Simulated assay, not measured.
Amino acid sequence: MQTEALLDRFLGALAPLGPLAVWAHGSLAGGDHQEGRSDLDLIAVLPGPVRPGTVWRVAVLHQGLRADPLAAKLHCSYLTPATVADSGHRHLTWAHQELMRRPVTPVTRRELHTFGRVLHGGAPGGLLPEVPDRELAEFVVSDQRDFWRPAVDRAQLWTRDVWVDMGPVTFARATVTLREGRLISKREALEELPGLGAPAEIVEDIRRRRYGGPAPVPSGEGWRVRRAELVRGWLGPAIDALVAAYA
């Protein structure tokens, strides 16, 4: 399996940095991973401060993996014992083939505790504090209100597959988390979407692109424009109603 081969290469390249633990979250840990389509979402806990030399070594490590066709989907945030408990800390992260700094969100932290996959070292429970239900719910509401709702108003975004794929699925996952206090997979989110009023054409469009199917995925400029109108016309009011109910 190409994914496992890439993970082995990654762990081997990371070994000189002496990681205390490496964990997978997202679909790779949750059992819904689609090779070649899904991201490889990882967390590494390094033993000491992330100094400029560490940043350089991390960059070299990831650049060395780029020949692998799946490497562009491998994302990893680098924590340390001094920063692991701070959910607002912006950790060194390799994502989308570049270095950046971003927090490890309460959703990711809850995923790690619930179904995180240990690739190396200790389990998340030994290093990572639990996420209180209130903190998780507040983050989910703010993500819908402050990120996704303004994005709905940016019409040009929704002609792109990635926004159509992620917006409705994230909304369905947010709804179930707020309603029931649990996390669900993308596959489960697709099953939730019809009951949340999502247009059937949008749900099928996402399903075929992620999981394949007997019929071809629609294409062409006319479909992309119509698809954007459908998803935005539903998603904006749906987010407004969710935020009003749970804010």
Rank of each mutant, 00 (worst) to 15 (best):
E4Y: 00
R224C: 01
A200C: 04
Q63C: 09
T177D: 07
G213S: 01
P49H: 07
G88Y: 03
D133L: 15
Y211E: 12
P218V: 07
L127T: 10
L65T: 00
R134I: 13
L190T: 00
R66E: 10
I206H: 13
A72K: 13
S219D: 10
T170V: 13
I202S: 13
H89V: 07
A5L: 00
V141T: 14
L92S: 05
L11P: 06
G222K: 02
G26K: 03
Y78T: 03
D68L: 02
A29P: 09
Q156K: 12
G30K: 03
E188M: 04
A215V: 11
Q34H: 14
A198G: 04
H75D: 07
V217E: 08
G197L: 02
V217K: 03
L230D: 05
V203P: 12
H75M: 01
A72T: 02
I202V: 15
H33P: 03
P106M: 09
A71T: 06
V58E: 09
P47I: 14
H33T: 01
G88Q: 00
G12W: 04
L28P: 04
L28T: 00
L70M: 04
T177G: 08
E192L: 12
D146S: 01
A241S: 05
A72I: 08
E204H: 08
G167W: 08
T170Q: 15
G236R: 02
A228Y: 03
V22Q: 08
L11A: 03
Q2G: 05
V45G: 05
P216Q: 06
